[in-house]
């Protein structure tokens, strides 16, 4: 076996862990092939795997992130415009905070510094949608081509979405206090010790925030995996049903969860024959848009701009869903 194959199977997919959990399930007298045994296996294996991967990944990414505090990102993006500036903003969005809750201060800071809306929104769309941790988790649960395709289309939504919003010329649709906010620039650099401390704190804080979502997500995943008949899922979200993508998107938009919680659900749905596009649309809808973040955003932008933002992002997610369903055979 190639080195890469070994790394993929043992470090990312954690085949050793799957085997160990199988042993454990057998040891307590359950048959891994049975419903209960299968549910227990899915739950224990996924929970341990996601927590191990998350801790390692968040730590590594936080170290990278410590080189790009928001002030620096703003300086990098300042004075630029055009499609490459949007692309740069979307790329920077992938290495900045994991949580949509930190987007609002960033939005205010960018807008106050007179960055164009196109740039700001490219960044805001990509920031919760695509991050390095979710890419590697996608590679772990599915495969690398799905993970890379996810990044690519996520960036496309961010770039196109930001550009469309910029074209609409809604600079005046931002709350007044945002544009009048002071711009405070710092140029502090961290020492290595500080970076490591920052990364450790990030791991603790993010785990503290997401552990419950992960458990719930894995629980739902395990339930779908072993208890919901394929026919039921198929009749609701099956590949041949044109409404599967819109239904998945509409269910996902108001939900608030981290991508880490939605991955096990996605995994179980794929196993039941739901289209890849439908599953990706669900994941993107959950992470990019949520009721709490919409309510927060409502306070900094006026209704027409908010509506445009929601329309553009939802439209992008629907488009990706239909596209991937049509091209599923390329990936699985």
């Amino acid at each position: 076996m190639s080195i890469f194959g070994w790394i993929n199977d043992q470090l990312l997919r954690m085949q050793w862990l799957a085997d160990a959990v199988t042993e454990g399930v057998l040891a307590v007298g359950l048959d891994p092939a049975s419903r209960i045994g299968g549910s227990v296996h899915f739950f224990v294996y996924d929970v341990i795997k996601i927590f191990i991967l998350l801790s390692v990944l968040i730590f590594l990414i936080s170290v990278v992130q410590s080189y790009f505090p928001p002030e620096r990102t703003r300086r990098i993006l300042g004075g630029r415009s055009g499609i490459w500036a949007n692309t740069l903003a979307a790329l920077l969005g992938t290495i900045t905070p994991f949580c949509s809750c930190s987007s609002i201060p960033l939005f205010i800071g960018f807008t106050a510094a007179r960055l164009p809306l196109a740039i700001t929104f490219s960044f805001l769309i990509s920031s919760p949608l695509v991050d390095l941790a979710s890419v590697i988790l996608l590679a772990s649960i599915f495969n690398w081509s799905i993970a890379l395709a996810y990044v690519f289309v996520g960036l496309v939504v961010a770039v196109v979405g930001g550009t469309l919003i910029g074209r609409a010329g809604m600079e005046d649709q931002v709350a007044d206090f945002v544009r009048n906010a002071p711009v405070h620039d710092t140029d502090e650099t961290m020492m290595w010790r500080e970076r490591l401390r920052y990364a450790r704190d990030q791991v603790l804080e993010i785990m503290h925030r997401v552990w419950l979502y992960v458990l719930i997500g894995v629980g739902i995943g395990a339930a779908i995996h072993n208890w919901v008949p394929e026919a039921v899922i198929g009749s609701l979200l099956g590949q041949d049903k044109w409404w599967s993508v819109p239904v998945a998107t509409v269910i996902g938009v108001p939900m608030y969860a981290d991508i880490f919680g939605t991955l096990p659900i996605a995994e179980a749905l794929i196993g039941k024959g739901v289209g890849l596009g439908t599953v990706l649309a669900f994941m993107m809808a959950v992470t990019a848009l949520s009721l709490p973040s919409i309510i927060m955003l409502k306070r900094v932008v006026k209704l027409p701009l908010l509506a445009l933002f929601l329309t553009v992002v939802t439209g992008g997610i629907l488009g990706i869903g239909f596209l991937f369903n049509a091209l599923t055979h390329w990936f699985i």
Partner: peptide, 22 residues
């Protein structure tokens, strides 16, 4: 309140303000 937080020009929390100076 993030409108007030924005009033200090802060993009990443937590922020520390001593006698109205960031």
């Amino acid at each position: 309140d993030f409108a007030q937080i924005a009033g200090y020009g802060v993009m990443s929390t937590p922020g520390l303000v001593i006698d109205e100076k960031l």
